[in-house]
Simulated scan of single mutants.
Amino acid sequence: MLKVLRAEPKSTFEYGPFKIRRMRPGKIVIDQEAKQGLEQESKQAAEKNDDAFGPLSVIDHANLLTGTLVSMHEHVNDEILSYVWQGSMVHEDSTGNRTPLSSKRIMMMNAGKSFWHEESTPIVAAEMLQIFIRPRQANLEGRVQFFDRPDGIKTKEWTLLAAPEGENAPLEIRQEVYVYDVKLEHKDLIEIPQQTGFAQFLYVMDGEISAENNVLYKGDAVSGDDPLPEIESTGNSTLLCFLVKLDAEAVKDGSISGL
């Protein structure tokens, strides 16, 4: 059975020129059990998973108007993938980096024991995800990585963006998590990445898709106890797929991922 997690308008909050809709990926398990009337199991899942999908803790879907400035602030023990889908955002950090991010340049901040950064949209607005993952160990070295892809998001071909250390991915995550993206056109069919021992979590960044008898819209997500079926794009769509080892050891005191 597929498990669907819908985008919830009530989880949206605004701070001046930017708006964030926060998704707690672990609710895809908890909500499904509640719908089936398994209240006790749902309560136990909430206590066990802390609303996280294994170490995948928070997905913030953000819209930043032109002129937004999120001033310099610190993260501790967060692995943060900054995925700009549309527009551009300027990243600045305590190591001296100042660089624009877009669909052609994405970033992974491995905050570790401390990492400071600032975000702004001085020229154009941006729509993006900030994905917070719990690291395997506390107080590792803070660092930042960038992945340049001049042609942007590939159509009908999954791109591996980030993976655990040693996997030769463009970006390293200090955790048992893989991240892929793809762009689909109307009526495209595609299989979902999978790997033994890892759960799939598929997020609709934009557009609309069909999975079995379920239609998913922008901001929705789907997972399942069995491998996800082939999906069809019922409009131009952008998707992210997370492969997550649900029982991976993880630190739960990150600035955001530990919430």
Rank of each mutant, 00 (worst) to 15 (best):
Q86I: 04
Q86C: 03
Q86D: 11
Q86V: 04
Q86G: 07
G87P: 13
G87Q: 09
S88L: 03
S88C: 15
S88K: 12
V90L: 13
H91D: 14
E92W: 03
E92V: 11
E92A: 13
D93R: 07
D93I: 06
S94P: 00
G96H: 10
G96S: 09
T99C: 02
T99D: 05
T99K: 13
P100T: 11
S102G: 12
S102I: 03
S103L: 08
R105H: 13
I106R: 14
I106S: 02
M107T: 05
M108T: 00
M108C: 04
N110D: 13
A111P: 05
K113E: 14
S114A: 15
S114G: 12
S114Q: 10
F115R: 00
W116Q: 10
E119K: 07
E119W: 06
P122F: 13
P122M: 09
P122Q: 05
P122L: 13
I123Q: 11
V124P: 01
A125N: 05
A125T: 06
A125S: 14
A126S: 10
A126E: 04
A126M: 02
E127F: 12
E127C: 08
L129H: 14
L129D: 03
L129F: 14
Q130T: 09
Q130W: 01
Q130F: 07
I131Q: 03
I131L: 10
I131M: 10
F132R: 11
I133V: 15
I133Y: 06
P135I: 03
P135T: 03
Q137W: 02
A138F: 07
A138G: 14
A138C: 08
N139I: 03
N139G: 08
L140H: 14
L140P: 00
L140V: 05
E141S: 12
G142A: 12
R143P: 00
R143L: 11
R143T: 15
V144D: 09
V144C: 04
Q145K: 05
Q145G: 03
Q145Y: 01
Q145H: 05
F146D: 07
F146T: 08
F147H: 13
F147E: 10
F147T: 03
D148S: 07
